[in-house]
Computed example of a mutant assay.
Amino acid sequence: MNRCQFVEDHQRRHGGKRLCDILGLSRSSFYYWRCTAAARTAGQAVEAGIAARIRKVHQDSDGTYGAPRITAELRDEGGPVVNHKRVARIMRTIGLEGVRLRRRHRNTLADQAATKTPDLIGRNFTASEVNSKYVGDITYRQRAPLS
């Protein structure tokens, strides 16, 4: 519930001016909210219609289409033109997603047959004198060619 709705619900008992002052809401904002209620209701009805069309296209694609493809389908069907950003927003609100086909990349593939390099310094990285121990780390190995 927003503050304007609260004032609307309780103004007869406590007075609109007093409630607006307590809630830190300007009265002009409250009255603007009140006079635009019909437009908001009409907008919600339009959004519900678009949401139904989006659900149908999403079901027809077996749940694979995302916002760009659904937008293209809605344009092909005709009817009111819908922006892809609006389609994405409505899809977020009704909990629909398209399928993402992304390939996973693995950079390092360890060769299981290779011999392990011995630990010559015994994990003791402190040196008693300068230039007596050199340590390095190579974490990336080139993938062996497939045969």
Rank of each mutant, 00 (worst) to 15 (best):
K133H: 13
N124H: 10
N83T: 08
P118R: 11
A72K: 11
S147R: 07
Y32P: 02
R55M: 01
T126W: 03
Y31H: 10
S29I: 02
G43F: 02
G15V: 12
D76I: 06
H14M: 01
V46N: 12
V130Q: 13
L96G: 04
R92V: 01
Y134N: 00
G49L: 08
N124M: 03
C20H: 08
A67N: 04
D76H: 13
V57R: 15
T139M: 02
H14G: 00
I54N: 11
R92S: 07
A67Y: 12
M1C: 11
S28R: 12
L109M: 01
Y31F: 12
I94W: 09
R34I: 05
R92N: 10
R86P: 08
N83L: 02
H84E: 11
E47T: 13
A67C: 08
G78S: 08
A45W: 01
K56S: 07
D9N: 13
R143N: 14
H10M: 09
D9L: 14
Q112F: 02
S128H: 15
R106D: 03
I54M: 13
T108N: 04
I50K: 11
S26H: 15
A127T: 09
T71S: 11
V46G: 07
R27P: 14
A42G: 06
N124C: 05
G78E: 09
I70T: 07
I50S: 06
R18C: 07
L96T: 04
R92M: 04
R53M: 00
V135R: 01
A114K: 09
E77F: 00
R102S: 06
N83P: 02
T117L: 06
N2I: 05
L101M: 12
N2P: 00
V81G: 04
Q59E: 14
Q44S: 06
D62H: 14
R104F: 06
Y32D: 13
C20I: 03
I22A: 15
A114Q: 12
